[in-house]
Write a protein that binds this DNA or RNA. Structure first.
Length: 507
RNA sequence: GCGGCUGUAGUUUAGUGGUAAAACCUCUGCCUUCCAAGCAGGUGUCGACAGUUCGAUUCUGUCCAGCCGCACCA
């Protein structure tokens, strides 16, 4: 059985394998690396492309109701004002210099303690179901401890974004209870800024997109007018997005440059959004299984209603059990008609759809499944990585590292191996088969070393099959050995059978 | 961003105030009739920059990167 070590070691083993075999490198490594950025090596580029292609084929080409889009990475700055990202991505944070705690300024509340009309001090509390009540209790305790006489005025709760500079020094830290250690709120905008054109001034500021979704909303009318689409329909896009994360963590799970696969599925305002939502959630689950993620590692997390943005009708995340914990893989959000309405208002251009059947004009609602290619990439590595103990002929136990990648996404589908490289007739047949296969599939040819070593090499990069050309191939019936990665079983098949197998499994 | 730990070859590690080693990997040749065999040979390394020193991979500082914890995560 597979014995992937404890979770910490499993991540180390995967990072190490990714580097060793050319899946993922740290970005700019010769200059010491750059936190939050990664390069995909020869095999990684193949694997990533396969994930993208599978998604695009299944989401766009094989569906009649979804069309593709490729919008620009830098868009008009007003896009991000309308979408709420300029405001929403600026989370002011407050640090406590003593306790080293960090708080979101809009979740840290304070109030002056006013006795007989005079400010005697301040109290603070973190946002809760009863923030005002907590502050009131704290204020009463404060008054009692300081033995101040007089009438206590009701507290007035404000959050730290509203604190005046002179107040900040007087507000106690929730961690220590003592004033003087809190910093003023500092903004951490997660959007990368740049300047368009020669002038570097405020008027030329623009942003690298923090999500691809806005491209679909901004081009909504263009697609409706030209794409011959009818509700319900979706617009899908694959592309790079950028977020200046405070702390990139967990290898490629959270990075600053990443690739998204998003789709906006527009439905009528009268449609059963809950059903459409559920349909897309299960579509996404089915798709993840189709590229080899085991159901046992997948779960759902429905965001609690009270945590949702006001416009959101519901968000369900498909979670994946990574070695470092159960984390979000694919978010499927029912966003109402918020985004289109925002852009209609901000741009002054109508975003309505005229429905011929009902003769009604309305702003469509939307279901948004959004997933990161890099997160899927990491998930398939984590799910597929296994270290096995296998016995050789003499019964000695040795370790086999194998990457169980689905044939759909494996970077190499078949390795072609002549049994011996110093036998010309074997090499000739192998190379001929290799040439034939590589017109259609990603194939690898390897003749160096013992055949067992070559099998193991392919195991480690996730190649599902190896075919070995031996003397029977040349001297007898032309069949060759098909060696299967997961079972290590071998059988003899013909060339036609090999092509049929690939045709069925690689789609 | 804060705190702790860490940084030697592609990987995993040893080691030293006098410019470094092993295993595996990789490459070449020989051999090899199905699961990391053997033999011979080759490539490749002290995270970066300063300081102390006659001399720094080793000591000190700063930076960078990684891991863990906290906080953050539209």
């Amino acid at each position: 059985m597979s014995t992937p070590a404890a979770s910490g070691n499993l991540m180390e083993a995967i990072v190490s394998l990714a580097k060793r075999r050319g899946f993922v490198f740290p970005s700019s490594e010769i200059y010491g690396g750059l936190n939050g950025f990664f390069d995909y090596g020869p095999l990684g580029a193949e694997l990533k492309k396969n994930i993208r292609d599978c998604w695009w084929n299944d989401m766009v080409r094989r569906r009649d109701d979804v069309v593709g889009l490729e919008s620009s990475i830098i868009m008009h700055p007003k896009v991000w004002e309308a979408s709420g990202h300029v405001a929403g991505f600026t989370d002011p944070l407050v640090d406590c210099k003593v306790s080293k705690q960090r708080y979101r300024a809009d979740q840290l509340f304070f109030s002056p303690v006013v006795v007989d009309g005079k400010v005697a001090g301040y109290v603070s509390a973190l946002e809760s179901e009863n923030t005002a009540g907590e502050l009131q209790t704290l204020a009463e305790t404060f008054k009692r401890k300081k033995a101040i006489q007089g009438a206590l005025a009701p507290v007035v709760a404000k959050d730290m974004t509203e604190a005046k500079p002179e107040e900040i020094a007087l507000i106690p830290s929730p961690a220590t209870g003592e004033p003087g250690s809190l910093t003023p709120p500092r903004a951490f905008n997660m959007m990368f800024e740049t300047y368009v054109g020669a002038l570097r001034d405020a008027s030329s500021v623009s942003y690298l997109r923090p999500e691809t979704a806005q491209g679909m909303f901004v081009d909504f009318k263009n697609v409706v007018d030209t794409g011959r689409v009818k509700l319900p329909f979706g617009i899908a896009q694959i592309g790079k997005s950028f977020r200046n994360e405070i702390t990139p963590r967990n290898f490629i799970f959270r990075s600053r440059e990443f690739e998204q696969m998003e789709m906006e599925y527009f439905i009528s305002e009268d449609a059963d959004w809950a059903k459409a939502h559920e349909d897309w959630i299960s579509w996404c689950e089915t798709w993840l299984k189709s590229i080899g993620l085991p159901a046992s590692h997948l779960s759902r997390y429905a965001h609690p209603k009270e945590k949702l943005a006001f416009y959101s009708k519901g968000t369900v995340d498909i979670m994946f059990q990574y070695p470092f914990g159960v984390q979000e893989l694919w978010g499927i959000a029912a966003r109402g008609n918020y985004d289109l309405t925002q852009h209609a208002n901000a741009s002054g251009k109508p975003m309505e759809y005229f429905d011929e059947a009902s003769k009604k004009k309305f702003v469509p609602h939307v279901i948004e499944p959004a997933v990161g290619v890099d997160r899927i990439f990491l998930a398939v590595l984590c799910a597929g990585y296994a270290e096995e103990e296998v016995k050789d002929e003499k019964g000695a136990v040795e370790k086999r590292t194998v990457l169980r990648l689905s044939p759909r996404i494996a970077p190499v589908k078949v390795a072609v191996l002549p049994l011996l490289k110093n036998k010309e007739q074997l090499v000739a047949v192998a190379q001929k088969l290799y040439a034939k296969l590589k017109r259609k599939y990603a194939v690898f040819y390897d003749e160096s070393g013992a055949v067992g070593r070559r099998y193991r090499r392919q195991d480690e990069i996730g190649t599902p099959w190896c075919v070995t050309i031996d003397f029977d191939t040349v001297e007898k019936d032309g069949t060759f050995t098909l060696r299967e990665r997961d079972s290590m079983q071998q059988k003899r098949i013909t060339e036609a059978e090999l092509f049929a197998l690939l045709d069925e499994q690689v789609y």
